[in-house]
Amino acid sequence: MQCDYFDAGRCRSCTIIRTPYRAQLAAKHERARAALGEGPAWEAPLASAESGFRNKAKMVAGGTVEDPRLGILVPGGGVQDLRECPLHEPALEASLPVLAEFATRARLVPYDVTTRRGELKYVLATVSPDGELLVRFVLRSTESVPRIRKHLGWLTARLPGLRVASVNLHPTHSAVVEGAEEILLTDQAFLPMRIGPVELGLRPQGFFQTSTGIAAALYRTAAAWTADLDYRSAWDLYCGVGGFAMHLARPGTDVIGVEASAEAVAAATASAARSRLAHVRFETADAGAFARDAAQAPDLVVVNPPRRGIGDLTRWLEASGVRHVLYSSCNVDSLAGDLAAMPSLRPVRAQVLDMFPHTEHFETLVLAER
């Protein structure tokens, strides 16, 4: 992939971009095999598009009201504009100049990390498979909210695909991207994310995989690997907006999704209702606490945890009698450690899915059985 920002030394986020993509993919496959061993049947790694695959933009705001920048923070506190980053899906890339123009129109003063002054900290945007948008403005205070509301009609006219817009309030000076309070600006509260036969819903504070194409492949693979398993009950732990849960739903099977984010659970619950999946439900809870408090273990457990892995949940799974565990991970090292802590669950299938081209990161899916 050609990237002028990288060639000019302005952005180094894609650390291995100069490695040919086929070699990147082969190296990730070998890295996963080395970490997990030859026990499972390894499928060929799943390639991504080399550019235009990223469905979300997390842009630091910088510059001035008249000349805003949307990009990444650089040493010294400045911001390198990355509006033409080739990773973004085309509809997302096309929205960024409009969002920068909107910042000028609404007089959103970019936050300066060195002086700790200004209002607009980040612009966060996500595009759906249908080309629709969810846009969030991360602000230090409510000072700019009336002006954003005043000019929102201009923004929706310029971005006809804008379905959800919100303000996130982040008053503290910290490395955390967003705060706890969200102010919805549009009548619609969720962005439909159509993944094959399933329509997921993304709310402003919800989580969705970075690449829609790879996410769809991940869910299809999960459904294919479990199609012949005899399970009457399943848990989707760390379920996010419910992608695995709704792809594993089938007649006669009870599926429960568990997620700490109430926003994600609300979106997943609404998605299941729209899809008339009566035997799929979602709960807001810590995954480990939910498992420990349950009266009975299910037949199948899906885990898709943060990079740190599932921690103490390994002990519960090892002792639980659960017959199959489907583990999706963005960190093969924590995945390997967690599997080692569950020796009764033997990995039988595995695959690398390249969610993050041009970086060392990737997704690994493993099916383990007792």
Rank of each mutant, 00 (worst) to 15 (best):
L339R: 11
E263Q: 09
L248R: 10
A268C: 06
S344I: 00
G131Q: 10
A23H: 14
I72Q: 10
L184A: 03
S166R: 07
N304C: 01
A125N: 10
A350N: 02
A32D: 03
A341D: 13
V138D: 03
R54A: 12
D333Q: 15
G213T: 10
G196A: 12
E132W: 01
A285K: 01
G321S: 02
E89V: 15
D112E: 09
R315H: 14
A287P: 02
R117G: 11
V138Y: 07
A270E: 15
F290A: 08
C239Q: 00
A223S: 08
G252N: 06
E38W: 00
L326G: 00
V135N: 03
H247G: 09
D354G: 06
T156E: 11
F207W: 11
T156P: 03
G9F: 08
L124V: 13
D333E: 15
P192A: 01
P204M: 05
S51T: 14
S211P: 01
L326W: 12
P110I: 04
D338G: 11
T253F: 09
S48A: 15
Y122T: 05
A106K: 07
A223T: 02
G243A: 03
R117T: 14
D4C: 00
A278M: 06
G77M: 04
K28S: 07
L326M: 08
K28T: 10
A217Y: 06
R147M: 09
L300I: 05
Y219E: 06
N304F: 07
S344R: 14
A8L: 11
